[in-house]
Amino acid sequence: MPILQRTIKLVLATSIGIFLASLWGLSNPTSAGIIAILSILDTRRSSFKIAKQRLLSTLLALLIGAIVFFLLDFSIISLGVYLLIYVPLAYTFKLESGIAPSTVLVTHLLIAEKITLSLLLNEFSLFLIGAGVALIFNLYMPSRQKQINDYHIKVEDLLKKIFLKFDSFLKTGDGRNDAELINQLDSLLKEALAVVYLDRRNQLFNQTNYQVHYFEMRKAQLKILREMAKRINHFQYKSAESYLLSQLFVEVSAQLSEKNSAKGLLSDIEAFLESFRKRDLPKTRYEFETRAILFQLLYDVERIIQLKVDFYHDYHTD
């Protein structure tokens, strides 16, 4: 969440929480603001999850606090006993996110030196106001769809550049490849996946795995591209076959977009394989090594395209 947006949310949630608690005549109204501050989170899903945990944690804390203070009187020692009982239970039931705000409410009982129904309701109401106001503000999360769409464009552009660079290597017989573009793509995919997973956690109802699977598919393709880059590093001998394969790389680079099924490329790859099989056997060691690398590259491209075809099949019915 951007700092400016978080700051605005914190200021408004805190102010409104304190205002509402004061308006309803609750004691210690600032505690509602503190709880609101602690409840402003980065995603909608985490907000609801934490709110539920803190609700249960508050009920548990007030119950334990009331019993301990009733039996042992109101003292710092009693507060210590309360913590000795409450904290382990909170962790046991995975309610530790509510330890701090709940304990703030329990200290109000210590300060008041009395246990009454109205006081317990006061503390519970402070929690409901603070957490409720924060939940309302957490319902607004800016859409990251434009940012995700930009990542689509950048990823596909880098993929195209990588294949065109492979094309250049095969045409010249120069396999000196520093994998710079592949490393750029790796960094870009990590950024994209971080944004996609964050955006997914903000979807309460209409969750989709599409974007996650899309970038994971590209990540799987990247792994194969790294293998191809290593093979091309050993490529030092251009041939008629390498020129043909370079043409396939150009064709692949033009069909990498999200909405392209790429099914036709599988047929083209099979035709290339058949053509390679019918050619004369290599006559020199260099020709043999080159042919072996080209076959490996061709199978690598087939794996890359198959990933794309499978992804397209999973999300398109046409």
Rank of each mutant, 00 (worst) to 15 (best):
S187Y: 03
E216C: 08
L135I: 07
R218K: 10
Q147M: 08
L188T: 06
I182Q: 11
A131C: 12
L135Q: 08
R176K: 14
N183A: 10
K190Y: 14
R144W: 08
F215C: 00
L139R: 10
F205Q: 07
L204I: 10
L158A: 10
G175H: 08
N149F: 09
Q145R: 04
D150K: 01
I153F: 13
K171L: 14
V133T: 04
N202R: 05
V133H: 03
D157H: 13
I182Y: 07
H213N: 09
L159A: 06
I224P: 02
Q203Y: 10
K146N: 11
R144L: 14
E191S: 06
H152N: 03
D186C: 03
H213P: 03
L188C: 05
K146A: 12
Q203T: 13
E180L: 15
F166I: 09
L185D: 11
V196L: 04
H152F: 13
N138A: 05
A192D: 08
K190L: 15
E227Y: 06
L185I: 13
D174F: 13
R200D: 13
L170W: 09
D199A: 05
I224D: 00
D199G: 04
G132W: 02
A179C: 15
Y210N: 04
A220H: 04
K223H: 11
Y151C: 01
H213Q: 06
D150A: 07
L185A: 06
F169Q: 15
N149C: 11
N177A: 11
L135N: 06
Q221C: 05
G173R: 14
L204R: 02
H152C: 04
K171C: 14
R201M: 15
K154A: 09
A192R: 01
A134S: 12
A192M: 04
R218S: 05
Q203G: 12
Q184H: 14
D199I: 03
Q207T: 11
K190P: 10
I162S: 01
L135A: 07
V196A: 02
H152G: 06
R226C: 11
F205N: 00
L188R: 00
R176V: 11
Y214A: 00
K165C: 06
L185V: 14
Q145W: 04
N183I: 15
I153G: 02
H213S: 01
N183H: 12
P142F: 11
D174A: 08
T172I: 09
G173E: 03
G130D: 09
H213G: 00
L193T: 06
L135C: 08
V212T: 14
S143N: 05
E191V: 03
L139T: 15
N138W: 02
I129W: 06
Y197R: 07
V133P: 01
A179H: 15
G173A: 12
F205L: 09
L222Y: 01
D186A: 10
N183G: 04
V212P: 02
I162K: 01
R201N: 14
K219L: 07
Y197G: 02
V195L: 13
S187N: 12
I182F: 00
A192E: 07
L189N: 00
L222P: 00
D157G: 15
L198D: 12
D178L: 09
R218P: 06
E191R: 00
E216Q: 14
D167I: 10
